[in-house]
Amino acid sequence: MKNLLLLVSLFIFQFSFAQEIVPKLDRSTIKIGEPIQYTVKVDYKEGDKIIFPSITDSLNHHIEVLDHKLDTVNTDGKSEIVQHLELTGYDAGKFTIPSLSIQKNGQDFKTKQLEIDIQDIAVDTTKNAIFPIKPVMEEEYTMHDYWNKYWIYGVVALVLFLLAIVLIVLFIRGKSKFSNKNAYKTPYDEAKASLKTLDAKKYLKRGEQKEYYTQLSFIVRRYLGRVYHFSALEILSDDLVKFVALKPDILPEDVQKFKQFLFDADLVKFAKQQFDDSTNEAHRKWVDEFVEHVKPLEIPENEDLKTDQVTGEKYKQFNNN
């Protein structure tokens, strides 16, 4: 008896909930591709947990989903959740909309299956003449079409062109520097040309003493380094003076003037010292004289004489006159 009552209660519950789920079509007959509206209404009250099925792009092989959404409707104190489906089909015939599984408060229930009739579209060939399929017509290309199709080649060509220009410029500059570097056969020729270039820049007239003394001291250091074959550019001023003082071919008075010149040049470069015109002219004149004093004498080639490993020149002595 208890089992019978339980069965009857379950049937009544299922029937009452089924009354709460109402699937509906706005019409049952459509043409191929024509949309049809399908709705499912579920009654609910506060605290109910209702889960609708996940809708994909089709319900079966013949019925496709164009759109879907959920709405909440309150009418005369009654609350409903409405699922809207916009359906269509592209095959003629009668097809069944499958049941949708809806869960309410942990219980699974299914909607009633509905049937739709999808009819083919009749074509009146007497009114609408049927023509043979036209061949593919070629369309003339515009500049825009060519750009869309071949723009990548244009970009690559432009990059290669710019790269070629950069390489040519670097090659020309490198060749020019190499030529200039080897244009002077002797350290003396290089020093004299560098001094002439320095004078042409007119740093002193513009008040740029730091740049002037930087380049002037560089010329003297490089000249000594090439003549005596040591790294004159990389040692301190005091060490350079000590090195020069050990050379018997350099006059003591030149050593003292060289020491003062380096000291003054360092003051300008590092302490922002500014000298008057007479001091600047005196230093410039002394550098010219110093270059002349240290200038080596060129002599005819002789295997018994020492050879300059940098320039290939052969020296016998230094002219201090």
Rank of each mutant, 00 (worst) to 15 (best):
K269G: 01
F261W: 03
I250Q: 07
S278G: 00
A271H: 04
K269I: 08
E281M: 01
F261V: 06
D254M: 05
K247S: 06
F261C: 09
Q256S: 01
F270E: 09
F261M: 13
I250N: 03
V244P: 03
H283Q: 12
V255H: 06
V241K: 14
N280H: 13
Q260D: 15
L267G: 12
K242M: 10
A271S: 13
N280P: 08
T279I: 15
E281L: 05
K257S: 15
D249Y: 11
P248M: 00
K247R: 15
N280K: 07
A245D: 11
F270V: 06
E281W: 03
A282Y: 11
K242R: 14
D264F: 06
K259V: 01
P248H: 07
L246H: 08
F243Y: 15
F275D: 07
D277I: 07
R284C: 02
D276R: 12
Q260A: 11
K269F: 02
K269Q: 03
A245Y: 03
D249L: 00
K257L: 15
E253R: 03
L251Y: 02
E253F: 03
Q273P: 03
Q273K: 11
F263G: 11
D264A: 11
K269R: 04
F258P: 07
S278L: 13
Q273C: 04
T279G: 03
F261Y: 07
P252S: 14
Q256P: 04
D249C: 03
T279N: 01
L251V: 05
V244G: 10
F263I: 04
D264S: 07
K272D: 08
L246G: 12
P248N: 12
D277N: 12
A265I: 07
K242H: 13
